[in-house]
Structure formats: structure tokens, C-alpha cells
Design a protein around this nucleic acid. Sequence first.
DNA 1: TATAAATAGGATAAAATTATCCGAATTAAA
DNA 2: TTTAATTCGGATAATTTTATCCTATTTATA
Lengths: 144, 144
Amino acid sequence: MFSKACEYGIKASIFIAINSYESKLVSPKEIAKEIDSPQAFTAKILQALVKHDIVNSIKGAYGGFEIDKNKIAKVKLAQIVNAIDGDAIYNGCGLGLHKCDEAHPCPVHDKFKSVREELKFMLENTSLEELALNIKSGASFLKV
Amino acid sequence: MFSKACEYGIKASIFIAINSYESKLVSPKEIAKEIDSPQAFTAKILQALVKHDIVNSIKGAYGGFEIDKNKIAKVKLAQIVNAIDGDAIYNGCGLGLHKCDEAHPCPVHDKFKSVREELKFMLENTSLEELALNIKSGASFLKV
DNA sequence: TATAAATAGGATAAAATTATCCGAATTAAA
DNA sequence: TTTAATTCGGATAATTTTATCCTATTTATA
């Protein structure tokens, strides 16, 4: 569904958010340990999230990554997915046709329509905040 | 969403079905042309579909591929997807956790639940027959 | 100001996916 | 029985994705 990079990006964002609530910066090392991902690869993904203005990086000694506290509730899953995988997952054709719309649909276009729309709605309406709070409360988990 | 191999496999199956209604065998060459896919790679995917007993192959001169007429209505998208990509798309964890269920959910488990279920339902209830008929009638397209 | 701790980013490697090529095996028809 | 058309399947190549490594740059603190 999502690429590995995107899976790591989502989990990393959640972990950073949790720590940002407590004004704590985190390193790629801590993140990779907490979300069970390869550290250097995770660092690359963080760079992308920084470029897309989802995550802040503080360079130099005692630096690390954080997310603006007042942004955590505003950042939606769709932004993270888009930053890493693009929008093909909910806007692209299910069978890879270059042109696929109501006027020229692929064989599964109609069948997929509601699935794609539900996915899109979910991604656009799920905030980092709710995901972070569920991890914090122990209702969900970042690894295993 | 699906792998390229799976996209080709679905489109190839539809094209084979259409021809099988008229008892016509088709070759990888014809299939690749009709679904706009690389021929040799398509042939490999056909081998997989044959192994999974979705498609029949008739070897030797004047051979080709077909699908039993009485099977076309029974074959569901899920079988094709499963044969090529496995079931991760609707059974696996959205964030790649090895263990992810109600008791130990990933952060998006609940959010994804209905999307996954709708996708699964769609795949398990969409037959090759309806997809083929829509192509036949010009209501949908295999390429461009 | 020197040092140490951090992110940035380029180069490279490994693995998976996608794609091609070719000879072997099969088989219908001449 | 020979021939030609066709699928099968192994080997290989190209591309993309995933992953690692190393150096440069940045920056807070001693």
C-alpha cells in the first residue's frame, strides 16, 4: 500500500510529535530504535519531511528533530504520504492507465472509486495529533 | 497499490476472458499489444496465472492461453491479486508491523479498517465476467 | 575559540521489482 | 515424420527501492 519509506515516515512523525509535546528533540538514532527502522534510511526520510516543512530540524550540537506544537493537530496523514509517495495511491489509476477517468475508465475504475475516496478522506482527516495521542495512551503501537 | 505485475495480470486475464467467450486462444504477443505491456514480462505473469489455475495454457503450435468459459464468472479479482501480489494489500498491516491486530494495533489500524475491508470485499466480489463485459461493451478500457 | 555533537547530503551498495533473451520442450498440421 | 508455431523456464540485465557509509557543515557549550 505505502512504500517502506512512507511507513517509516509516518511512524517517525508520530514519534517526533510525541516528544515535541514535551519540547524534546529526537535524533534519527532514537527514532529508528523506537519505530524499528534502519537508521540511515530513516535519516534520509526525515530530510524529505523537513523539505516538505512537516518536520523541523535543529542542526548542530544538541540538535535534533521536532514538530511545531501548534502544527501537530494540523498535519494530516495525507501530507506525509504525499511528501514521500506522492498522490498516486488515491489519485492514480488502479491498473496503471495513463488516462483514467469517468470518460475513459479502466476496468476497475468504478469498483475502486469508493475505496479510493474513503482512503483519501481518511488520509486527509486523520491528524498526527490523534495518532500520537493513541500511542501515548498505549492504545496503539509503533513496532513489533 | 498493486504491483505492475499484478496490473498486467488483471488486464491480461480480462483480455483472455473476452476471447475465451469466442473460444479463441490468445498469445502473449497479442495480449501485450492489447494491454500495452512488455511482452516477455507478460508471458512470465501468464505462467504464474497458469500455475495458480486461473488461466489454461495450450502448448505447442496453434496453442495459446484461455480461461474456461464456465470459470469466467467464478474467478474473482482477489484470486488474481492473491496469485501475484499475495494478500498483504488487504490483510497486512498498513504500517508494516509484523504483528498488528485489535489487541496490538498499529497507529492507523482502526482508521484503515473500513478501507481494507471495503477493498477486500470489492476484490472478492468482482468477477472477471463483469470486467470483461464492460470492456466488450466499450464501457471501460484496457489501455491508454 | 576549540571541541564535540548533530544534521545535510553525496556516493555507493544491496535487494527487490521489472524487463529481456534464448534454448528446451511440446504439439498441431503439412 | 518433419516442420513450424508455441509455451516453459532458466539466465541475465535494467530499473527502482531500500539501505549504508562517509565527509561536510552547522552550532551549542566548555
